[in-house]
Design a protein around this nucleic acid. Sequence first.
DNA 1: TATCATGATGACAACGTTGTCGACAACATT
DNA 2: AATGTTGTCGACAACGTTGTCATCATGATA
Lengths: 344, 344
Amino acid sequence: MSVTLSDVARHAGVSIKTVSRVVNNQGEVSKDTRQRVLAAIQQMGYQPNVLARSLVMQRSYTIAIVSWGLDQYSPSRFVMGVAREADEQGYSILLTLLRRSKQDNVELVLNSLVSRRVDGIIWHAPRVGNNQDWICPERLAQMPPLVLNGLPNPHVMTVSVDNRYGARLAVQHLVDQGWRRIGIITGLVEHPMAAQRTLGWQDVLQENGLECDDSLIANGDWTAQSGEIALETLLHRRPDIDAVFACNDLMGMGALSAAARAGRRVCRDLGVIGYENIPGSEYCSPPLSTMHQSIFELGREAVRLLVARIQARANGEDLPPELHIAYPELVVRQSSLHCNGKEE
Amino acid sequence: MSVTLSDVARHAGVSIKTVSRVVNNQGEVSKDTRQRVLAAIQQMGYQPNVLARSLVMQRSYTIAIVSWGLDQYSPSRFVMGVAREADEQGYSILLTLLRRSKQDNVELVLNSLVSRRVDGIIWHAPRVGNNQDWICPERLAQMPPLVLNGLPNPHVMTVSVDNRYGARLAVQHLVDQGWRRIGIITGLVEHPMAAQRTLGWQDVLQENGLECDDSLIANGDWTAQSGEIALETLLHRRPDIDAVFACNDLMGMGALSAAARAGRRVCRDLGVIGYENIPGSEYCSPPLSTMHQSIFELGREAVRLLVARIQARANGEDLPPELHIAYPELVVRQSSLHCNGKEE
DNA sequence: TATCATGATGACAACGTTGTCGACAACATT
DNA sequence: AATGTTGTCGACAACGTTGTCATCATGATA
């Protein structure tokens, strides 16, 4: 079916090994034969068989990304960053989606990756329940993992976004604008990311001597609809609220909509800030203030770190796992501004 | 490093081949030895080496998806559908992102996939320039492709969304609402998808005897910002416009924002409809009417068709390439409704 | 008893690469 | 002239599977 080294060798009148040398341009081959072999390769359309190479070299030049889902913006961007950098580094990426319903298939997924002999894993799913218990010495020996927002662990590489820091920036901005009773619409509570953002919110309120009561908390699930409902319950429970921190932009948009329906005019009666800077957040009415994260770049960085580790391991050295943290930036638009109703 | 068949064989006191038989439970193995082998496998944590298996079987149980990008909602959903179905069918998926800048790397990408001996390709990128010229007999022999929104071709499988039909539904709805001068904000003109939607818009205007002039067309690039600018120029050029069909929701949101700034009240002075039904489109103000497409399901279907073809090919049969078309559905929300200003 | 099907198993050669080692010529050094 | 060095190249054995065939009991049939 496909052209092999041996086909090319026969055609060029040399040994298999010589062709192999030319392909990987390694070792000494005379200019003359190199030309001849190159011509044969060109002519026959030879493409090396990576499977065979992987088998003998004991590495597949493949890294797996195990993802929770691509339907949100940030995860998609992360995967794009991973794909781009992997391409540039000469690695292929194997995409695996975790089933959200089943807990127990983590083990299955991992076994499948071992079977495919991937050189490393990028774990791109929130730590919920015991779904990261697989990170144990036995597994670590098989393939090095890099975990997004992972727990500190001396044997595991991690790239993280400092969500608590980001949340602090967002809420501090609300405080600076003069808002005083600041509620929060959280993400899915079982996601560590959501927990971190809630902590940041707490930090700022406490530092500023503002009220920080459970009645200011409404739980969302990252969807716009949940944001809408959350703001409704919040306003009902605490009519004195004058601002709200939505833990992502979609929920922020839901909140904007709920506010309008409740007759609360954003910027005058209510400050709103989101988190994630999704496309479109700029075009809500009013435009949604938010936190920006360079997630694409984080994906690239993840691959860089992981590949460095893989290469090192192949050379017998054991690179100490590095850690990379990204810090979000505040994007001030209109929804968080406090107009004091002056222009009424 | 890792446990092999031969390790298990030695441990269980049988031949390699027998272990192989147990693993693939094929052939006749006595109950007794089967138990013994199974125990050994369990005990040693054996995982078959898919690389080696692929090498000898001449198929990798891997399919590649070549994508244009994951930053829009629909493409992400498509990839999710692909990943899910591939998982269920026992295939792994290799994710490749096309560089948008370079045209010429299509050939490189393809060669890399041949090198990895993928069993099939899902081509998930708009046909722009000559970037689908690779679909030629030579390539077809190497690995069967399935193309999203591909051109009709007796040798290539295709799954499509009927974009022209969807656009017709959207614009007809505007007409039904009583809007008469209907502009369009197109997608990137070089994308066939954008062209199809524009054709659908034309169809309906002509069928209804409405004006269908070039001055009603403004070109966007799928981003919200481009939608905003497009509506501005449109309103400037043709102040008599009373409705606009935005070829995706993001541009629709931009248009909504531009309308507000221009003092045009949506629903009264201007009808707006988008396309794609992204999360958040429901929470614009006013909520954006749009077209819904079941893209996740389309991704699953793509894998089903492709895998069927691969299996058939492996059995020597040559399954005729099938075709699958999905039809979008209208989602009526507020932005497209015509209030006639009654409640003024 | 001789022959034959059947069931269970293993030896061995593929698959397409790469690493190791040795062969051999050409040339430089003592 | 004998020896060492260098540059080219090929034979051969891995890598971990699977398919093909042969082997060898065992029990059934003629």
